[in-house]
Design a binder for these strands. Structure first.
Lengths: 107, 107
DNA sequence: CTTTAATTTGGTTATAATACCAAATAGCCA
DNA sequence: TGGCTATTTGGTATTATAACCAAATTAAAG
């Protein structure tokens, strides 16, 4: 693998890694409906607010969300809503896996 | 977040996590061109063969690839080629990030 | 049945990710 | 200013990943 390809795959992996956590997928799903402030997200996530804040930082560092402080609150929104189209395939894989699993169990 | 949604996001995260590594992205890219045996992949990756074998196991456990032993060799192939469509959006994000970065640098 | 080749598995060590708590920061309002 | 609220940052402990080497497994061939 040459250096250029390696760099490409590293860049892609960085973004994919940012999505690779249930809490962050929840956040993305929530932001798909519109911008949300940290405290709204915290409610849905049900974890410490510092934890949520750090998840948001991960998404922000990957360029997936942007934020906007208004008063006391910080609002986050998706930067590239195309991210959503992304999950169609994941669902296909999940369906395939379920199907395969049923086949193995012999039912 | 109710239990059902949590389960969905956990299932998605498991698959996304399996993709979140440069070596595994390289492997997926390679398999997109057709099936490959472990030793061919090892050459491209340039790591210990046991390392490559473990990356393949991660992809297999996520249901992303399937394997097929023929003689001494084990061939791997993509199970859901739709995975490829997946990267279009990642590239969009990367382009956006590059654009944003240039804007920050003021050029 | 012994040797050789391809791959996987087990073990170890190093590094990264995640969660929570506590403390710091920033903006509003009395 | 002083206090209150929303969020981020720092610190730390726990758990998960990833790499390599060595040993085990499996299939083919002599």
């Amino acid at each position: 693998m040459d250096a250029k390809k390696l760099a490409l795959f590293e860049a892609r992996a960085k973004i994919i890694k940012a999505l690779a956590h249930p809490t962050r997928l929840y956040i993305v799903d929530e932001l798909a409906k519109g911008e949300r402030c940290v405290c709204e997200l915290r409610e849905g996530v049900g974890a410490d607010i510092s934890t949520v804040s750090k998840h948001l930082l991960v998404l922000k560092n990957a360029g997936l969300v942007e934020d906007d402080k208004r008063g006391l609150q910080v609002f986050y929104r998706l930067r590239c809503p195309c991210i959503l189209s992304f999950f169609g395939c994941i669902e296909d894989v999940l369906r395939e896996n379920a199907c395969h699993h049923r086949a193995l169990v012999g039912k």
